[in-house]
C-alpha cells in the first residue's frame, strides 16, 4: 500500500477532526462542558449551505450562510439552553445537548429526508493531495491560528479566558461574564459549521457527522480538552493513524484503533498529550 497516499489522505481527514475538535475545545474552555449537540449544529449548517447551493448553483454564498448560521445557533443554544443550567453540575448540560442533538437531527431528516444527497467539495477533489484537501488543511490551520491569537493577544480573548476560569473575579473587574460565554459559543459553533462543510462532502445525510464527532472528541481528549493547539495536533494525528490502520490492517479496525490510541495516550497522560493537569478544587 502506498504510504504517501495514506498519509496525505489521513491529513485531509484529520483536518475535519481537528476542526470539530477545535469547536469542542472552545466550548469546553468557555463553559467546562462537552457540547454533544455540536455535530447536529454543524449538520444543520451544512444542510443550510446545501440548500443555498442548490438554489444559487454556487458554493461560497452557502459557505458564508453556514458559518453565520453556526454562530447564531451557537449563541441561541447558550442563551436558551445552557445558561439556565449554570449551577447544575456536569450531567444536566450533557443530557440537554444530547436532547438538542436528537431534535436537530430529526428536524434535518424532516426537511431534507434521510437519503444521502450530493454535497460539493470547495475545490477539485482529484489528486493524491487535491486542492480540496489542501483547502481543508489550510483553512483549519488558519482558523486554529486565529483563535489562538484571539485568546492570547486580544482584550476580548483575555476577558473570555477570565470569564471561563474565574467568573466571580472576572465579574468583579467588570467583565460581562454572560456575554463572554455567548461569544465563546458563537465562535465555537461557527468553527463547528466549518467542520460540517468540510465533513459533508461527498454526501450529506442526517447522521453524516456522527462518526466525525466521535473522532473529534477522541482528538480533543488526546490533545487535551483545554488546549486548542493540542486538539488540532490530535486531530491530524488521529486522521493519519486511522488512515494507516485502514490501509494496512483493515477498514473494520478503525474504531478499535481509535479506542486503542485513546487508552494508550490516557494511561500515560490522563489529561491528554498537551492538557494541563488542573489543580483539584478542594
Amino acid at each position: 500500500m502506498d504510504l504517501t497516499t495514506l498519509l496525505l489522505s489521513g491529513l485531509a481527514l484529520g483536518a475535519i477532526y481537528a476542526a470539530l475538535g477545535l469547536s469542542l475545545v472552545i466550548i469546553f474552555r468557555a463553559t467546562q462542558m462537552v457540547n454533544f449537540a455540536q455535530p447536529a449544529l454543524a449538520l444543520v449548517c451544512a444542510y443550510l449551505a446545501f440548500a443555498v447551493n442548490r438554489a444559487t448553483g454556487g458554493y461560497w454564498l452557502g459557505f458564508i450562510v453556514a458559518i453565520v448560521a453556526g454562530g447564531v445557533l451557537g449563541a441561541l443554544t447558550e442563551r436558551l439552553l445552557i445558561r439556565p443550567l449554570k449551577d447544575r453540575g456536569p450531567l444536566s448540560p450533557v443530557i440537554v445537548t444530547l436532547g438538542l442533538l436528537l431534535v436537530l437531527q430529526a428536524v434535518a431528516g424532516m426537511i431534507w429526508t434521510a437519503e444521502p444527497q450530493s454535497f460539493p467539495y470547495a475545490f477539485d477533489f482529484r489528486g493524491a493531495f487535491s486542492p480540496a484537501s489542501l483547502f481543508a488543511v489550510v483553512v483549519v490551520l488558519v482558523t486554529a491560528g486565529a483563535i489562538l491569537l484571539l485568546f492570547k493577544f486580544t482584550t476580548i480573548g483575555l476577558r473570555m479566558r477570565a470569564a471561563a476560569f474565574r467568573p466571580e473575579v472576572a465579574a468583579l473587574v467588570g467583565v460581562r461574564v454572560g456575554r463572554m460565554l455567548t461569544i465563546g459559543w458563537t465562535l465555537a459553533a461557527a468553527v463547528g459549521a466549518l467542520a460540517g462543510l468540510l465533513a459533508a462532502p461527498p454526501f450529506i445525510h442526517p447522521t453524516v457527522m456522527d462518526t466525525v464527532f466521535v473522532y473529534a472528541l477522541t482528538a480533543a481528549v488526546i490533545g487535551g480538552l483545554d488546549n486548542a493547539i493540542g486538539t488540532v495536533i490530535g486531530g491530524f494525528l488521529l486522521g493519519i493513524v486511522l488512515s494507516l490502520v485502514s490501509g494496512y490492517l483493515g477498514a473494520e479496525l478503525v474504531t478499535l484503533a481509535a479506542l486503542a490510541i485513546l487508552v494508550v495516550v490516557l494511561s500515560v497522560r490522563p489529561d491528554g498529550l498537551f492538557g494541563q493537569r488542573v489543580a483539584r478544587r478542594v
Partner: peptide, 11 residues
C-alpha cells in the same frame, strides 16, 4: 443524484 454536484467545481 449522488454524483450530481462534482462536475460544477471540479470540471
Amino acid at each position: 443524484g449522488l454524483l450530481s454536484e462534482f462536475g460544477k467545481r471540479a470540471g
